[in-house]
Design a protein around this nucleic acid. Sequence first.
DNA 1: CCGAAACTGAACTGAATAGTTTACATTTTT
DNA 2: AAAAATGTAAACTATTCAGTTCAGTTTCGG
Lengths: 204, 204
Amino acid sequence: MNAEPQFKKGRKYDQVISGARDVFMREGYEGASVDEIARDAGVSKATLYSYFQDKQALFLAVLQGECNIQKKASMELACQEQDIATALHHMASSILCFLMSENGLAIFRICVAEAQRFPKLGQAFYETGPKNGMVQLSAFMASPKAQAELNISDPWGAADTFMQLCRSDLMLQRLMGVADIPDEATIKAHADEVVKTFLARYGR
Amino acid sequence: MNAEPQFKKGRKYDQVISGARDVFMREGYEGASVDEIARDAGVSKATLYSYFQDKQALFLAVLQGECNIQKKASMELACQEQDIATALHHMASSILCFLMSENGLAIFRICVAEAQRFPKLGQAFYETGPKNGMVQLSAFMASPKAQAELNISDPWGAADTFMQLCRSDLMLQRLMGVADIPDEATIKAHADEVVKTFLARYGR
DNA sequence: CCGAAACTGAACTGAATAGTTTACATTTTT
DNA sequence: AAAAATGTAAACTATTCAGTTCAGTTTCGG
């Protein structure tokens, strides 16, 4: 199937990760019991504990996996084709879709909840998740193309502004379980707003 | 001391709320044990349970209290003195201070964490917290003063933009335990940015 | 097809914790 | 001061859950 250098981790490794991901996303960190994860993964608890030292280590592995997936996806954001406005709009939509998705929210929720009592997690998430996105965004802001068409002296600040504009009240409503996942029209409308505000500030 | 119409709730009511608030803020919802709350509040567990049906009800009461405090504080935001830029800057600073504060973050953390498995909480928090702030902000955006000096056709949208601009990457870092509470200069600098971007979009 | 490594299932340990109960003490009201 | 309301301390119930152990089974490379 996939020819990655599997490192002979044992046959059930992927199964464990995948089951754990499902249960953690569904129940949160505290809410997920190791017994349930093992059952869902179709694996015995003993096997699970042969792969991971404890529940925290298991969650960290799941987190890393999810962040890597998202990282790959966001790589494609930096397609510098088209004009700036279109590129920005494309990015905003993509970011919005991820932020509003069940998976995106679930990870965020867990990390927010556990960051206090499990500092390594907060840090790991920030570094491999949002910060990573910011780094890519600010690389775009600093690119020749963007520099030519926009008036950006502080790429990081511009990236920050752009990112924040994407996280609207709607995201808060999603986080709090007050709103359902938005339809495409809503996302498009919001992306329009983001670009409009961003260009008002940084356009030439 | 205070002449509020105490409703004869029993002598230790305030003590319980205050102890509960401290422990919840320190430990999160799951992390806070009822025994610890009782000990911290200097009250017996039986007393605590004579006031509140269960742990959830106790937390809801704490939440309501905190949101009310914040509501009162944010009332003062809408001081329509001075010119628009100064008023906006004043508001941004005030919002930033609250968002970055330990208490503000702690409440947010807990609500985010519990909103899934405890939907009433998510809703209660959104309504009495952020939404309330948004309502006040958008009232400002719709006020004659703002309408005269700014170009706002959608007050709610403008309020949303303003609010989001306040929630920078720094807030994410705070949430994840990656950054310490920012100093005043940092807050001022960020408030400047917020106003600059906001006026670029909505200024005449 | 054999032996080693990986896996299973189920029982077990030990610790936490929400919520209850009870017998007694203190405070407030009348 | 008596009565009524309120509070206390501590033991108790019942449950949940992370992590371990182990005797036996499956899988797979050589």
